[in-house]
């Protein structure tokens, strides 16, 4: 029981990170039907920006007391801004020209952008993993049989707060409504006066911002950043988005948490080397029985 709860908590923490990344995939897919392969690398970039700020502040000796909280906030905000701008920049430079191109052209472009980003991050930070400063004190707390670290609580709380904010933004704000309208029908949206280019750019900004949050909490949780992190995490997060029903925001969250727990429990019960096999086998099985993912709507067939 004790170990079950510990693995559950770990799975939730891992899942929170995957869910944040998965949301970025799902938002972009929802609006452009593009699998943004470079998204995982935007997450890596966010992680390194946060890492850079924290290392700098620690060297300046300001990371204690109130300075610690401000420093963490500064790192988080910097990661969010940097990732958001990077993602929007990619859209502007690489994807916008390809809106009317054959479906696979933007996909290959995204793969190319991903390679370029990985190489640039490697040139910037080297090809070895870089330690992420342990800024959040991590005493273990006990709640009955459940033992969790403060760090875990911070990671999950931050992720959930971000998801709630996203939910309200998409459902309530004018921009959120415009996003949903463009996702449903780009031509109709532009007929009713929505600026499609701007809405798509904002979607990329938001997806990037989510990747920035993920980059920060991922760095805290894993204790390092690595130029290829985005590949593995991106693959699992993308799987999470599809598992939940791609294009569906709640689905991406659900999928993220499920994949996180699946990874944690499969490592515990059948061994770490089978965790990828477990994740992808479950994905295939789910899709065989629910072809549009867990929460996805059945697509109307084109006539």
């Amino acid at each position: 029981m004790h170990e079950f709860l510990a693995q559950l908590a770990n799975g939730v923490e891992l899942g929170a990170i995957y869910a944040l990344i998965a949301l970025g995939y799902t938002l972009v897919y929802g609006i452009l039907e593009l699998i943004n392969f470079a998204h995982g690398d935007v997450y890596t970039f966010g992680s390194f920006v946060a890492l850079g700020i924290l290392v700098g502040l620690r060297a300046a000796g300001v990371l204690h007391g109130a300075g610690l909280i401000l420093g963490i906030a500064a790192a988080l905000i910097a990661a969010i801004l940097a990732s958001a701008l990077l993602n929007a920049g990619i859209e502007r430079l690489a994807y916008r020209r390809l809106r009317k191109a054959p479906r696979l052209a933007p996909l290959i472009t995204a793969i190319g952008v991903s390679f370029m980003l990985e190489n640039l991050i490697e040139l910037w930070q080297g090809s070895a993993p870089v330690p992420f400063p342990n800024v959040i004190p991590n005493p273990q707390l006990h709640f009955g049989a459940l033992e969790v670290g403060v760090q875990q609580i911070v990671v999950v709380a931050l992720a959930i707060a971000t998801m709630i904010a996203l939910h309200f933004f998409v459902q309530r704000s004018k921009l959120g409504k415009a996003m949903r309208a463009v996702a449903q029908d780009r031509d109709a949206a532009s007929l009713v006066g929505i600026n499609v280019d701007r809405t798509i750019a904002i979607t990329f900004l938001i997806a990037g911002a989510l990747a920035g949050v993920a980059g920060f909490v991922g760095g805290v949780s894993f204790g390092s950043a690595w130029f290829l992190n985005g590949f593995g995490a991106g693959l699992r997060a993308f799987t999470a988005a599809v598992l939940g029903g791609i294009g569906n925001i709640a689905g991406a969250m659900l999928g993220g948490f499920l994949i996180g727990m699946l990874e944690s429990f499969s490592t515990w019960l059948i061994g770490g080397q089978w965790s990828n096999v477990a994740v992808f086998s479950v994905l295939i099985l789910v899709l065989v029985f629910r072809p549009s993912g867990l929460l996805g709507e059945t697509l109307p067939e084109k006539v």
């Binding site: 690489a94 020209r97 390809l98 191109a101 054959p102 052209a105 933007p106 290959i108 472009t109 793969i111 190319g112 952008v113 991903s114 390679f115 370029m116 980003l117 990985e118 190489n119 640039l120 490697e122 040139l123």
Partner: peptide
Amino acid sequence: SNLHFLIYGAILVGIMLFRPE
């Protein structure tokens, strides 16, 4: 040699931007 991926990625992106088909 530390630019391989950058070059490879740029080739993919370049061809797609100029000849999407």
